[in-house]
Structure formats: C-alpha cells, structure tokens
Write a protein that binds this DNA or RNA. Structure first.
Ligand code: MN
Ligand code: MN
Ligand code: ZN
Ligand code: ZN
Lengths: 157, 157
DNA sequence: AAACTTGTTGACAATGGTTTTCGCTATGGT
DNA sequence: ACCATAGCGAAAACCATTGTCAACAAGTTT
C-alpha cells in the first residue's frame, strides 16, 4: 500500500490527491463516493499540526453546506486509517483524533500538556527506526509508531 | 513526588507498599481508605505485562467478595495516576488501561497488533531520554513517555 | 472516648462518543 | 438502461466514564 502510494506520480507532499484515494479504493473493491472525497478533503484542508475529531469533521462539513451522517464519518475514518491515508491518535483524551498519514514524511510525535491539553508536535527520525527494529524483532509488520510525551507545559506550571 | 518515592526506604521494585500510599496521601491531605488500598493491591497482584481496565479491577474486587462502587474505581485510578503510582495507557482501544508506574524501572513500551489486539512489551532506555530532551526543550515538566508501535503480528498476517 | 469536621463512598442517573440497525440510495459493472 | 450490492443516514442502542448527593467513615479536637 504505502509503496504504491509513494511511487505514484500523483502523490504530493502533505496532502492526498483524489486519484490516490480512487486507486486505493478500486484495488480493494470499495466504491468511490462523494462522502469519502469530502471527508478526505477536510483532512487535507486542515492546517499542519491540526488534529480533528470525528465530530470536528462532521461539523466542518455541515458548516460548508454538505449533508452527511455521523455514521458515515466514523465508517470512513476507519476505512481511511485501514488504507493508510490517516493516522488515528489516542491522546488520552475522551475521543480519538485524526491527521493525514504521509508516508514520505518522517512521522512526527506529540508532546501533550496533561493539564490544559495543548499539543506540540516534534520530529525525530530515530524514534521511527527504533519502532521498526522492534516490530521486525517480534515478527510484526509495521503500521504506525506513536511516541507520546506527557507533561505540564510552561503556562500551567 | 517521584523523588520522594524513590528515596523512600519502603519502596520496593515492582510493587507499591501500603506505606508509600499512606505517605503520598497524607502529604496531600487525602485520606487513607480501604478502597484505595484494595485497588492498589489488585494492581500490585497483576502479572508483569498485564494491563487492567477499570472494569477489570472492579470485577476482580467483586469476585474476591469486596463491595465497591464503580465511581470509586474511576476516582481512585485517577488519583493514583496523579500521585504517580500508576500509568494510564491509551492503546487506541475503546477503554483505558492501567499498570504500576515504577520510577526505578526503565519505562517500558508497547507493540500492539492492530488485528488481534495482543500487546507485547519492550524496553528501550533511549526512548525515555528522547522524551526528556523534548520536554525540556519545550519547557514542559515530564510526566510520562509512551512509545506505542502498531503493526500486524505473525499469527494475524 | 465522644463529638466534630470534612473527605470519601456508592447507588443511580446522566453524559457523550461511537456503533448498530435497516430501509433507501447511488456506484460500478453488464 | 438495468441490476446487484456497497454505502448512506436517521434514529436507536451501546457502553465507558462522569456527575449527583445523602450516608458514611477517617482523622482531629475536645
Ligand atoms: Mn500530529
Ligand atoms: Mn505495560
Ligand atoms: Zn498546559
Ligand atoms: Zn495479531
């Protein structure tokens, strides 16, 4: 999957083109729907460092006049995670968050204030290779590495 | 907190003695209750590598004849996390899991099969120091580092 | 030891994110 | 154009977690 995506001429840093989605869906026997496009569009449009919940995405679509049900949001998010287009983040909050998963970028990590909930992103190439090593050692095929650091931020101290 | 715990003569590897709980509770003005003892006891009794949910703990206590309400389980788990005695794990599951947080041990990390949900633990001292560095760099005081690797295990492939 | 103060408990209701249901719709193939 | 069926969405169900509040008990004062 990620190899096909990476070598696709349509693939562009930081966003997922409609063609990529089409290719992935077709090759798994899924259908290409307006809803799936719209949802991925919202994720594409999000600013770097944004983490969107299912409800965030639903609300954004309603705001821009789209009619879409919550079930579709949840179903599609799971699908896009399975296809490797999205990363699902369990940041110890009460809900899950989603962001684009870009195979060409070094996966980034999160520093979270346990008091105010603010999230800082940072990159570290070493982390991913440690995860790869461990996956290999245990006979796992790697899907995602998430390094999450919890602390108290400067303002909250 | 962790410094006091570490230097306490009552502290023992791999488990938390009642005295430690007493000291921590007293110094914050909390009370020492039967329920808090029982809950920590369950965590102490858990096998290495076990991750218990609030309901797991509640059920274990009911099974051994203790009467205890769910609210108390949740309240106490939060308290023990705040006191630094427990680690709360957000493993992308639908619920949270808890394990002893042992300041003298190198914090361990988790390799999870996204298909069957099995969890493998592994240790890596480098990870924690990367987290410490990043926390320092951003002016955070460090609470916990969680490195979680997702993949597909051998049986599930 | 009894009285007192107040943190804590637990039954129960409420919350809120996510999933399920199922009749309807739209996609992709013939 | 027609068909088979994957996908949609409104509503209900689900379920982990939190809130409420009267009764209780831990620790302190007399
Ligand atoms: Mn991020
Ligand atoms: Mn563990
Ligand atoms: Zn903060
Ligand atoms: Zn597996």
């Amino acid at each position: 999957m990620s190899l096909a995506t990476m070598s696709s001429p349509h693939f562009v840093f930081g966003s997922h083109h409609p063609e990529v989605l089409k290719t992935l869906l077709n090759q798994e026997g899924f259908r290409i729907t307006q809803q799936r496009h719209k949802i991925l569009e919202v994720l594409n449009a999000a600013a770097e460092g944004d983490h969107l919940s299912a409800e965030d995405i639903h609300q954004k679509l309603l705001d821009q006049g789209e009619k879409i049900g919550v079930s579709t949001i949840y179903r599609t998010l799971h699908l896009l995670v399975d296809l490797g287009l999205l990363r699902e983040l369990a940041l110890s909050e009460e809900r899950k968050f989603y962001e684009l998963s870009n195979p060409m970028t070094v996966a980034h990590h999160h520093l979270i204030c346990s008091h105010c909930g603010s999230v800082q992103e940072f990159e570290d190439a070493a982390i991913v290779s440690l995860g790869q090593d461990e996956a290999l050692r245990q006979g796992f095929s790697l899907l995602d590495c998430q390094f999450t650091v919890y602390g108290i931020c400067e303002q909250c101290s």
